[in-house]
Write a protein that binds this DNA or RNA. Structure first.
Lengths: 245, 245
DNA sequence: GAGTGGTCTAGACCACCAA
DNA sequence: TGGTGGTCTAGACCACTCA
């Protein structure tokens, strides 16, 4: 670790370098989701910097919700599991704000090859093996979301419909517990669309009813895209909440 | 400024207290949008704390994009004006990502009294005077958004249709330059809806076409709600982009 | 009580900017 | 050259957790 202030034209602050080193350990699986990472002083001596510098690197990662600090206990690799709101990325809320019972129904699970569009989204070569999942999400016994999900096959080797059915929770927690893959952020594109006949039947609504279309690409450590999904949502009695800053 | 560690049950870190003091100066208009605030050392001696503590308070405010740091120059009160992307809160993007020429057309400007719903959203008493604005936003000569905007009248005394027409840019920059009121964050609720006859005519589309409905409440310093708006957007060739973290 | 993260200070030096 | 923000260090002490 060299503090090369003006030596190099692409100078990076020490704490940024530490941040990269910690991220690399996460990518390599040295610490898995839910694990405690070494204390700030341990990391400081390992990287030969002061505790304050390690602290600033961890601050940044904690801000991005990649790490979770717990006073008196330690710093932990974030998981979807432990989040109170089970579904971090699910922004759909009932108009009256009440809690709802969530259920998901698997419609299909297939293995396929990436076409041009998918390979572009997930940064794969055309023809790479992928898994495709279609499912229905039910809120308080009413189907509200039709999901179409695509992931590359190789990092999720052995994934199958049975596993998805058994694990009744979020797919993201399945990714973490079974494959050590955590999604750290996602990009979404929202549109209003009309339900086509097939979707309308699945969601038990009329043809042409307006649906909120949510296309999402999720990224894991190192900003690698790992999942594409398209959700079609009934929003007559629900809304997608968002906060702008 | 007292470092009352265990003295008080509702202990707040010093830097949080400093943050509140700075925010109060912003609310009271001591520094207006675009102004430089005093240097970290000046604030430190004013508040009788170390420069590092002031720094941490400013860090937090800079993260919330309330202040903007400029190395070598100073720290400034953020403005909508200086943001490259003129319309910070406008998330609508063309499918192909190209830049578009924006224009807005005022449909109506009226003075009215807050009903129950509005007074609830804006934290006003029922019957408080408000201004209502209806306008059309045009992207590259095609009308894409029908906006209905409500603000309380008293903080925006003297606002009228003429001013809105003259200032062809974002309403938010008008609020800042004319009234010193800056919106620091907003909450949105998105839904897919069907165009009713009136809206369809205004947007030059067929009845019942799906529209993206965006209901937004914007907040100024001290988290005070100051504007309600409902936007109805055509999304056949555009999408609302969002990032989840 | 030992160990962890959280706050606060003081001081050194670097990078950027303007006059 | 002087002033500003940006980085880094070292050390003190507080708050929380657990054995």
């Amino acid at each position: 670790m060299i503090n090369n202030f003006d030596a190099s034209p692409n100078y990076k602050p020490l704490y940024e370098q530490i941040k990269v080193l910690i991220t690399q350990s996460l990518i390599q699986g040295e610490w898995r989701p839910g694990d405690a990472i070494p204390s700030e002083f341990d990391l400081a001596s390992r990287f030969k910097v002061s505790q304050g510098t390690v602290r600033k690197a961890i601050d940044a990662l904690a801000n991005e919700r990649i790490l979770i600090r717990k006073q008196g206990k330690g710093t932990f690799v974030a998981t979807h599991e432990e989040e109170k709101i089970q579904l971090r990325f699910l922004r759909l809320t009932a108009e009256d704000g009440r809690k709802e019972h969530l259920k998901n129904t698997l419609l299909s699970f297939t293995r396929a090859k990436a076409d041009k569009e998918i390979s572009n989204c997930l940064d794969l070569k055309v023809g790479t093996a992928i898994y495709e999942i279609k499912r229905l999400l039910t809120f308080s016994n009413r189907p509200l979301i039709y999901d179409h999900i695509v992931v590359p096959a190789s990092p999720f080797k052995g994934l199958n419909g049975q596993k998805i059915i058994e694990k009744q929770g979020s797919l993201y927690s399945l990714y973490e517990t079974q494959y050590g893959i955590r999604m750290i952020r996602a990009e979404e594109r929202l549109k209003a669309v009309s339900a086509d006949a097939k979707i309308a039947r699945a969601l038990n609504i009329k043809d042409k009813e307006p649906l909120l279309s949510i296309e999402r690409v999720s990224f894991t450590y190192g900003d690698k895209p790992m999942e594409w999904r398209l959700g079609l949502c009934i929003t007559d009695n629900h809304h997608y909440r968002n906060e702008l800053e």
